[in-house]
Nucleic acid binder design. Structure first.
Lengths: 225, 225
DNA sequence: TAGATTGTTAATCGATTAACAATC
DNA sequence: TAGATTGTTAATCGATTAACAATC
């Protein structure tokens, strides 16, 4: 087996998709204990070579020629790699409509994410969320972060105060930030930031869409002659 | 000037960030008409070469040595490239908490995105959203998509029915899909899909965070000897 | 002028893709 | 056995980075 290298961001991004498919596949076909790269690749319409390489990175047991990978083992390996098995506590700052939706989103649990509390500076939203989570003030939030040694912060406040909130979280001991606001955050080197950048996504989608529609329009032109 | 090539996805993803900064910069410093790659690069803590290359792709007027790019011109060029100036109509299916937040999110307007209506199969949510947008049934939604020739669909329904909704939208004439559900969508070749994949983002963040914390822990160990 | 910044060309780097022996 | 699938090694490709002449 190849010596395990650092796993690339590209590979990591694909792993959750694989995992969801494998879990589903495992449930549906109780009889098949093995799964091949080809089957996964076919489902996602990507080349099997990519899948093969990705799996080689995360699998602790070698795949078997002709058979593929042992399904339960592979599921466990990916879960371990992604840290789905040890719960990651987090706080979420900014319980507006988007923040509120994220705070109560049940799906995160399956990724091992546990949002311990919502934090907001607006007195009016403090208390309990519709989903049953605590929403506390900035001061109380800081206390919780420190006491529970929470490392992960989710920011869902509107643009203006994002940097301020970010600084505050770092001061409290937060090491990783998942940023849903469109603002670029300035952080020290030892802080990890992941931007959920909808403007970027939309830009990519809309340019690709423009190209597609343009192409179809041209084809239509040819045909109609 | 270099002949304009297709713009890479990486470049497109960065453009909205540049644009936001340039707009801000333009407002703050009314006196400076020019801006250099170096200044943009400094703000985002990336190398100026990347910025220079990106701007070369989108600028219609050459930059001037020693000066940089004409600020209003550059802003316009990026806006044109991203299509912020011609409004893109869209529908949004699934007016749950996340969907509702997206439906009423004002920020989209500045990206040229106009969500014409929310669509939901739950009778109870039909009517008008808190933000004042129409929420209609699947049937009425189909009628709107066809009548207004809408090309862009946003999917924010829970996992199970995502594929079904996707098929329905395509049948109505939708060409591009912005998918906020964690499911992989099967679509014909001529349909553009952009997944807003939170599981991927979280996976990347959480692995990087683990590495950071591990590294800090090791350093701490060394120091404490 | 000197120096900052541009556009362009070349080098590097890493991910994707291809090729192939090993094996069940 | 034949053929599918693996792990590994090599080739390709495209984005990032470096280098440098041109220019204001």
């Amino acid at each position: 087996m190849e010596t395990k290298q650092a796993i690339s961001i590209e590979t990591i991004s694909r792993l959750p998709k694989y995992l969801a498919f494998l879990r589903e596949y495992h449930k549906k076909s109780n009889n098949s204990l093995y799964i091949s790269s080809a089957i996964i690749a076919e489902h996602f319409e990507i080349t099997p070579i990519v899948v093969k390489k990705d799996l080689a990175k995360v699998s602790t047991k070698e795949g078997r020629p002709r058979m593929g990978f042992l399904l339960p083992q592979l599921i466990e390996d990916i879960e371990d790699c992604l840290g789905y098995n040890n719960v990651k506590d987090a706080v979420l700052v900014g319980v507006g409509r988007l923040g509120g939706a994220l705070l109560d989103y049940d799906g995160f649990r399956q990724y091992g994410l546990n949002i311990v509390a919502g934090i907001d500076r607006d007195q009016a939203v403090l208390g309990i969320s519709p989903g049953g989570r605590r929403i506390v003030s900035l001061d109380n939030g800081a206390e919780i972060i420190k006491r529970l040694k929470i490392h992960l912060g989710i920011i869902a406040v509107p643009g203006k105060s994002t940097q301020e909130v970010c600084d505050y979280l770092i001061e409290c001991g937060i090491k990783g930030i998942w940023n849903f606001s469109p603002t670029h955050l300035k952080t020290p080197d030892n802080i990890v930031v992941k931007n959920e950048d909808m403007a970027s996504s939309l830009a990519v989608l809309s340019i690709q869409l423009k190209e597609t529609i343009h192409r179809e329009y041209m084809n239509l032109g040819e045909h109609s002659i």
